[in-house]
């Protein structure tokens, strides 16, 4: 009997393994459908659209590379790219530096840690529109909070959002204010460093600067790397805060016209869906290349230790 049963094996799907696999696919299915319809399909479609002219009403017309040719001769493309790069280059490192320093301070066993941590973190969860409204007040040139504070120090503050030179720094300041999320990630990274390393170093006579240089910094490089990669991807797509702060205009004189506002304008004000898609793809390629460069260069400076856990 047993031999006969072994001779005609059950179809794979009826086996325990098969049932498990079916359950697995079924449970993942909603996400796969969502991914196909709302991510994969649109990626392919936007690639196709970037070679077309489409305004939602008339049927799409194939243009070849015309969108890209126009884009690379469009001065506002360069303006918006420059504005975005300016913000990325300053806001990402400064935000990381600020949040890393805060995390270092918080990692000293200070009294009131929870209160300080809360104070640093809360700005990062304030809704973008509300924080933009708040910073309109903070940065108000005549009687805003920041210039009020500066005048108290005897400094005459600039026009901030009203000034072409200071509008981008204003946004960067707001972003640093809201960088509490990366502070939490840094703090978690710091707390993951095994205490024994510091104890051993102290016995060997390493001072705090040395301990920072040879233990903290190397062991924090995976966390720094993580924050850097996510920060660059996120900051290239900055939109809401700038849009609200400048009434959707990216002013004054296009000095805060960031890339996504320019995409928005082309897509939803001019209904140039094809041109906007080509813009989206240019940004996508830039972000992809920069991310790949970061991953490639990571092996020269990111130190992976078996004891640290990275989320």
């Amino acid at each position: 009997m047993a031999a006969v049963m072994r001779g005609t094996p059950k179809p794979w799907l009826k086996t325990l393994r098969g049932k498990e696999a079916i359950a697995c696919y079924l449970f993942i299915l909603p996400w796969i459908i969502g991914f196909t319809v709302f991510t994969l399909g649109p990626i392919i479609a936007s690639f196709g659209l970037s070679f077309m002219d489409y305004d939602l009403v008339l049927p799409p017309k194939f243009l070849g590379l015309a969108n890209f040719v126009e884009l690379f001769s469009d001065s506002l493309f360069y303006t918006s790219m420059w504005n975005t790069l300016y913000i990325v280059i300053l806001a990402v490192p400064l935000g990381m530096l600020a949040s890393f320093m805060m995390a270092l301070l918080l990692n000293q066993k200070v009294r009131g840690l929870a209160a300080y941590r809360t104070a640093y973190f809360i700005p990062s969860i304030v809704p973008a529109v509300a924080s933009a409204a708040l910073w309109l007040y903070v940065l108000q040139p005549e009687w805003g909070l920041l210039n009020g504070f500066l005048s108290w120090l005897g400094i005459q503050g600039p026009g901030w959002l009203a000034s072409e030179a200071w509008s981008k720094p204003s946004i960067i300041l707001l972003m640093i204010w809201a960088s509490g999320g990366s502070m939490i990630i840094f703090l978690a990274g710091l707390q993951n460093i095994p205490k024994e390393y510091y104890e051993a170093a102290e016995i060997d006579g390493a001072n705090s600067l040395r301990r920072f240089q040879y233990i903290t910094l190397p062991l924090m490089t995976p966390t720094i790397f993580f924050n850097l990669v996510m920060g660059v991807i996120g900051t290239f797509q900055i939109f809401s805060v700038v849009f609200v702060l400048t009434d959707g205009m990216g002013g004054p004189v296009n000095s805060t016209l960031v890339y996504l506002i320019y995409i928005y304008r082309n897509a939803f004000n001019y209904f140039r869906m094809g041109f906007a898609s080509s813009m989206a793809w240019v940004l996508f390629v830039i972000i992809l290349v920069l991310t790949l460069i970061q991953f490639r260069t990571a092996r020269f400076w990111v130190h992976y230790d078996t004891d640290t856990v990275e989320g």
Partner: peptide
């Protein structure tokens, strides 16, 4: 890690 902007326009359409 995918920038949301690549899917924006076709999803809108």
């Amino acid at each position: 890690m995918l920038p949301g902007v690549v899917t924006l326009i076709p999803t809108y359409i």
